[in-house]
Computed example of a mutant assay.
Amino acid sequence: MAADYDELRSDVKESQEQSLQALQTAGAPTAKSVVLELDETDGLDAGGPGGEIVAEELIVQVIPQGNDEFVCNSCFLVRHRSQIAREKDGLSYCVECEG
């Protein structure tokens, strides 16, 4: 008699059925309930973009550009003079942008 080796063994099949039944009776959330829950929480964030509104004033100290610094005309970052790769028409470009 030929044996079908692709068929599940009876003990494995029973354990799979038992675990499926356990999951169904455990009250696991369904896909619909998860979507509904997410939609409800999204409604709470509808106050506007950017999250909660805070009535605090932001104070930032601005430090002027130093004598040994320049602003790259490509990436617009303040860099040390040692990082100048090229100067053309009074505009400076850093080593990273000129790569």
Rank of each mutant, 00 (worst) to 15 (best):
P29W: 11
D68S: 08
D89H: 09
I63C: 03
A22E: 15
F76D: 02
V71M: 09
C97L: 00
H80I: 05
N73A: 14
I59A: 02
E37M: 02
G66T: 00
T25G: 00
Q18V: 07
Q65V: 14
N73W: 06
E69M: 05
G43W: 01
V62N: 10
E98W: 09
D68E: 11
E56A: 10
Q16C: 12
V54P: 01
Q65Y: 05
D4C: 01
R79C: 14
V60G: 07
E56S: 10
S19Q: 10
R9L: 12
A2W: 13
C97N: 01
A85E: 09
V34W: 02
V62W: 11
T25Y: 08
A26C: 02
V35S: 13
K32Q: 12
G43R: 01
F76M: 07
E17P: 10
K88I: 13
I63W: 02
V60C: 09
S19L: 14
D45P: 00
R86M: 03
A2T: 12
V12E: 11
P64F: 07
M1W: 07
I59M: 08
G48Q: 06
L23G: 13
Q65L: 12
D39H: 04
E37I: 02
E56Y: 03
S19H: 09
G66N: 08
R81I: 14
R81Q: 14
D6G: 15
V12W: 13
C94K: 03
S10T: 06
G27W: 06
A26K: 10
I59K: 14
Q21D: 15
R9E: 14
D89K: 05
T41V: 11
V12N: 12
G48P: 05
E37Q: 08
E7H: 11
E57R: 15
Q65A: 06
A2Q: 10
K32I: 12
D45G: 04
A31R: 01
L44I: 00
V34E: 00
D42Q: 02
A28E: 15
G47E: 10
A28H: 15
L8H: 09
L8M: 15
E52A: 02
E52W: 04
Q16G: 03
L20M: 13
V35M: 11
D42L: 07
L58H: 07
V62Q: 08
E52C: 01
Y93L: 06
S82Q: 10
C94R: 04
S15I: 13
E57K: 15
D42N: 01
H80P: 12
D6W: 06
L36I: 09
A26P: 01
L38K: 00
L8C: 02
S82M: 04
E14T: 09
S15D: 13
R9C: 13
I53T: 13
E17V: 14
E52S: 08
V78H: 04
T41A: 10
G47V: 06
L23T: 06
G47A: 08
R81C: 08
Q18R: 13
T25W: 04
R79S: 10
D39V: 01
V95C: 02
E40F: 02
G90P: 10
A31W: 05
V34Y: 03
T41E: 12
V35E: 13
V12F: 11
T41W: 04
Q24N: 09
E96N: 03
D6E: 13
L23S: 10
P29H: 09
E98Q: 12
S74K: 15
Q16E: 09
T30W: 06
D11M: 03
S92Q: 08
E40T: 15
V62I: 08
K13F: 14
L23D: 02
G51V: 04
E37R: 00
L38F: 03
G47K: 06
